[in-house]
Amino acid sequence: MSGPRYDRSKRQDQHLIGFECQACGWVSFPEEKRTCKRCGDAPAEMAEVQLAERGEIQTFVVQQYLPDDIETPQPVAIVDLPQEGEGEPARAYGLLTETDLEEIDVGTEVVARFRELFSDGERPINSFKFSVPREEKA
């Protein structure tokens, strides 16, 4: 595919930045939005917020069948990433990496890791995956 689609989203793909709706408090991550997905405010006043590196698994699955370029078994979760300051967490998909399947559960703490998500054939496309924090590994 073309290059520009990644360049358009590069900043929030490479930084833990969320976009908080000033009307209702909803946090978008990593999409930079001018409309609010919760309250529908449009145009919405969105404020940049810094998200924490550590979040919590809300739910997950372990996939066995995926396109050939994605390794299996592939655990994927819905992760809540809190803000560094006050306010709601952001809720987003997270692919898990460098984690044993037995370590994964609802409520498990995970840390964001900057990793290659895929290659477009010419260059790696990098963003965040998640893993159980290393120091807590058995």
Partner: peptide, 22 residues
Amino acid sequence: AALERLWRGRGVTMPAYFGMRA
């Protein structure tokens, strides 16, 4: 599941989407 849009469901199949609710 092979969507190249970052974070927009890359690596998430139909069974995964519904399985997460399970």
